[in-house]
Amino acid sequence: MRAAIVVFPGINRERDMAIALELSTGHKPRMVWHKETSLDGIDLVVLPGGFSHGDYLRCGAMAAQSPIMPAIRAHAERGGYVMGVCNGFQILTEAGLLPGALLRNAGLRFLSMDCNLRVERSDTAYAGHYTPGQVFRAPMAHGDGNYFASADTLDRLEGECLVAFRYAEADGSLTTAANRNGSQRNIAGIYSSNLRVLGLMPHPEDLVDPLMGGTDGKPLFDGLAAALAA
């Protein structure tokens, strides 16, 4: 699998993502500056977390207009894999590659803590090494992670089973307390209709080594490496 990480000014999780990808795939991902315009030969494009362009106007709004975006859009339209984590998820919604938007956290506070994610389905390239209903721990660090979409869009996401992960209790139950940022229907991550584009707010890449305090996020990268092995 050949992976690329898109580097926007102001992001800060690109090296964490590179460590996680290299650990599972054995290959260093290519770092792609946001002013580049080509993603030739790339299987997986990752938009990492951080604060691209200082979160000016809206989180991800400026990055969504970057010179690299037409290449990312073309890659997605070809059926290529695109994963956006945290700011990357915000950029994907701003670019219209995933539906909905990420609003200010319901409690207004920046949330920097671990959360529990419930895996909604495992028949995807991203979740193949988890089981449906499995709960895993993931760090989160965001001020604008409150997933919002119109009722029609939410119903479509549920109807097509495009919710990837939900904020849950350790036993998998969906509670308001577990849904700290106020996301609609506890949604932490969603897929595109073809299941190739994933956006999620928490950071599985930050729990892939015992030295990080756990390996709960590693199955996501191992699953990707297995699914995209070529």
């Binding site: 106007l57 809206r58 709004a61 701003e94 539906p99 909905g100 938007a101």
Partner: peptide, 8 residues
Amino acid sequence: RLLANMVI
């Protein structure tokens, strides 16, 4: 196209 996000 930029100043507002018409979703929200």
